[in-house]
């Protein structure tokens, strides 16, 4: 099985605060991997580092075997850096989030970030923009009619497959919560990713919606040959769907394994439930 994503000794330090500490992990082709941990453990920060929103203070990230991000402490950080492996990554490589999306990494956000004033259709159509070959002048003068039509057709197809076609002309901000989550995933899929990062896809969902979401994630994973890496708090969902789980606490991995191993791991239980005080 080939590796789709690999993080090597990734540290993200903001001033004196170490949000992610020497995190190393990998996600294999076709897997569903979950990243869990208590609030403030650095899960979303890890996602932001992978997608280029933040440049890591130290460490390297590989996507499909290619180095996409690499950094070591520079400037002020040389003095402030508290992590390890500071001399391990001599190359500096930084990419903006849009470049990383273009490589095939799509994501959703913890607090839904739809284009709220635009319709469902437009939300998905915008994701097709980055693959458009037309320049701004030919697009303005409508010399790209064929391409535009193809973009619209693909969007329509995607909405039909995901069961959102009836809502396509609705303003996305007015959709019910569950549908907004679904639309955000649809929008991410429209970028034709090979790796999908889901940041708490089931947040705020009731058990029935969570079940639907579980089936939905499985379906898109198979249909689009995706690899899924997700942050989630709903343990039912995580245990049912994940092939492997990483547990993060205070920015560090404290456990790794399949759902059963994780459930029985004393350090995980401790992180989630606190230390038992024996009398």
């Amino acid at each position: 099985m080939s590796e789709v994503l690999r993080l090597e000794n990734v540290t993200m330090q903001f001033g004196g605060v170490v949000a992610v500490n020497d995190l190393s992990l990998h996600v294999n082709q076709g897997e569903i991997v979950a990243l869990i941990g208590p609030n403030g453990a650095g899960k979303t920060t890890a996602f932001n580092v992978i997608t280029g929103v933040y440049t890591p203070t130290n460490g390297a990230i590989y996507f499909n075997g290619d180095l996409i991000v690499s950094n070591h402490p520079q400037g002020n950080m040389k003095k402030l850096y508290q992590g390890e492996n500071r001399d391990k990554f001599p190359t500096v490589k930084v990419q903006t989030p849009d470049a990383i999306t273009r490589l095939g990494v799509a994501r959703t956000f913890q607090n839904i970030r739809l284009f709220k004033d635009l319709t469902v259709f437009e939300n998905v159509l915008i994701a097709k923009h980055m693959r458009a070959k037309a320049g701004i002048f030919s697009a303005t003068l409508r010399l790209n009619a064929k391409e535009e039509q193809a973009m619209r057709k693909e969007t329509q197809n995607l909405l039909e497959i995901l069961g959102l076609q009836d809502l396509s002309q609705e303003i996305s901000g007015s959709l019910p919560y569950g549908q907004q989550r679904r639309l955000e995933i649809a929008r991410a899929l429209a970028t034709n990713p090979s790796l999908l990062l889901l940041d708490e896809p089931a947040a705020g969902m009731n058990p029935q919606e969570t079940d639907e979401l579980t089936a939905f994630i499985r379906q898109i994973k198979d249909d689009y040959h995706l690899t899924v890496f997700m942050i989630e708090h709903h343990m039912d969902l995580v245990m049912e769907i994940s092939d492997r789980i990483y547990v993060l606490d205070f920015g560090q991995t404290i456990a790794e394994g399949d759902p059963e191993e994780i459930q029985n791991n004393p350090r995980v239980i401790e992180a989630y439930l606190g230390v038992q005080e024996d009398a």
Binding site: P97, R107, F115, D117, H129
Partner: peptide
């Protein structure tokens, strides 16, 4: 319009 609505999301859409 995507940039107007949400810069971070627009960037995540490859813009």
């Amino acid at each position: 319009k995507a940039i107007r609505e949400d810069e971070i999301a627009a960037e995540a859409m490859g813009i």
